[in-house]
Design a protein around this nucleic acid. Structure first.
Lengths: 232, 232
DNA sequence: TAGTGGTCTAGACCACAGC
DNA sequence: CTGTGGTCTAGACCACTAA
């Protein structure tokens, strides 16, 4: 009861939808009807309905009105946190073991996954949790987009956290697949056929590629959880 | 240039942030300063900034002001679409082969992953794309939450799409892991050690559990892509 | 305590899609 | 056409908190 007016209206409408009292396709009252019902300004009911639209509960069509949307398993919000933070949240010690750090010139070892112009830094390493391998990391960094990366010290500290602090705002794309350990089996201390979760991430600053990273987790030591829940 | 005023202001501010002109921690002008600059009402700049807050680009503190947020790889929006829709979008034929359909009474074969009261329906089947196995599905449905599921016909049609149409609004939680094919290897036509992507989904209506589903995809035939991009 | 964001009002005009 | 949502204005009061 201490919430703001638009939040209370929003919850009121959401309850009617989630309970099934208003089923999918049902036309909800017009903004002007809701104004009269709640005795408030139009902007206030508009804000409440806009939040429901953002959550996919309602669809709006001009002249026709606002309708309860068909439920769909559409999207989920996936947490892709920093590995060091995950490990420390478990109460385990964390460190990053650097296996390789090489500067590549444009022609050298082109990677189809990461087509940055100019020099790139190739980094390979292992995230260690409580003394045991937690994830293998293979990373390429564009030195044009991240100047200073070639003189940073990645023995002990993961390049991911360095980039987070030193390269400003980014856009990212993730790809999640399953694969066998194979060439990283020895590094991770697994059988070659062990199932692993592979997360790839491409990061841009404006339109320039900044970094590509491929992280491989033992399937039995890591999972990803995605929530799709209404906002409180 | 045809966008609305709040969108143009939002883009204007976002460009300053993403380009690095305003770096993380920088204090952006107050709403009242922006009003003067853009010559508009306070609600309009408020809407623009609220959108930036929703995207995690800006943090606001009363009395102190609004600041460019520290970039974090926080969350990504993951598409978890209907399997039938994915297959058909590829231009392949789709069907669902039912392997087992059993009604369970409360005491029978309790599943730690799905603790619904009352009778449950256990469904096991395979999603078939272009004649080849695409995913194995193991599902439990609470008959209290989804009445009618026990008389529905799931030979040919996936229970997921049936539920989507027949059970109103839901909340969902997803878990993504990697595993070997093992007991579903024969069904999917894979080696027992083949790496597979396993997606589990728990669904509630209000606070009542509706269904639990575990889908297993051959690692080389499926992936999940998550975008974290600014809104246009 | 003063300045900031947070919320709300009571209007207004417009574009658009159904009728 | 007419009603709907979409957007915007020019104010207002309040809660919070950093200075």
């Amino acid at each position: 009861m201490t919430a703001t007016l638009d939040q209370r209206i929003r919850r009121d409408l959401e309850r009617k939808i989630r309970s099934g009292a208003w089923s999918p396709g049902h036309r909800i009252p017009t903004e002007r009807e809701l104004i009269a019902f709640y005795g408030c300004a139009r902007m206030t009911v508009g804000k409440a309905i806009a939040a429901l639209v953002a959550d996919g509960l309602v669809e709006r069509r001009k002249k026709a009105g606002s309708f309860v949307a068909q439920p769909r398993v559409r999207t989920a919000v996936l947490e892709i946190p920093d590995i060091a933070a995950v490990v420390r949240a478990r109460g385990e010690t964390y460190r990053f073991d650097l296996l390789q750090q090489t500067r590549l010139t444009p022609g050298q070892r082109p990677d189809p996954a990461f087509a940055a112009a100019g020099d790139r830094l190739l980094i390979e390493g292992v995230h260690i949790a409580a003394g045991r391998p937690f994830a293998h990391e293979h990373r390429l960094i564009s030195l044009a987009a991240a100047p200073g990366a070639d003189v940073a010290d990645f023995s002990g500290r993961s390049p991911g956290s360095w980039l987070l602090e030193n390269v400003p705002w980014t856009t990212a794309r993730h790809r999640i697949t399953a694969r066998q350990a194979l060439d990283v089996a020895v590094t991770l201390g697994l059988a070659r056929a062990a199932a692993c979760l592979q997360v790839e991430r491409w990061t841009w600053r404006q339109d320039d590629p900044v970094t590509y990273v491929r992280q491989i987790f033992p399937g039995d030591r890591h999972d990803l959880v995605a929530e799709f829940a209404p906002r409180p």
